[in-house]
């Protein structure tokens, strides 16, 4: 990843796009490199705020320990489960081969 103060390069953007599984044209990559750099600069700005006395958190709701009991509730039928799928076969979801032999 690029230095946070530098601009995000096009190869950086392309790498992120691969990880996010989003195909990008060269033009889009160029445009996003600019926009994401702006975002990074904005985060740089936020980082200047004094947070010395603020406890780190990963949530903002203030909730904790939200559980459910171990009880079975009805599932969808196979037909319902598959109803939104582009492609199915004999009760399975069908997708392009992930193994290339």
């Amino acid at each position: 990843m690029a230095d946070i103060n530098a601009n995000l390069s096009i190869p950086d953007v392309k790498k992120i796009a691969v990880l996010a599984n989003i195909p990008l044209t060269d033009e889009e990559a160029r445009k996003l490199a600019g926009e994401l750099t702006q975002t990074l600069h904005f985060i740089e700005k936020i980082k200047k705020i004094d947070t010395k006395d603020i406890k780190p958190t990963s949530h903002v709701t203030g909730l904790s320990n939200v559980y459910r009991d171990d009880q079975i509730s009805p599932s969808l039928t196979q037909k319902e489960a598959l109803s939104q799928a582009k492609s199915t076969y004999k009760g399975y979801f069908k997708v392009p081969a992930v193994l290339k032999d």
């Binding site: 009880q71 079975i72 009805p74 196979q78």
Partner: peptide, 26 residues
């Protein structure tokens, strides 16, 4: 008895495909 984040039956072994699912685990 149930799955980790939803109430679907976790005992899937030998079941017909895609009969133990819900919006959470899909």
């Amino acid at each position: 008895k149930s799955k980790m984040f939803c109430g679907c039956d976790a005992n899937y072994f030998g079941g017909k495909p895609n009969t133990h699912t819900c919006p959470v685990c899909l």
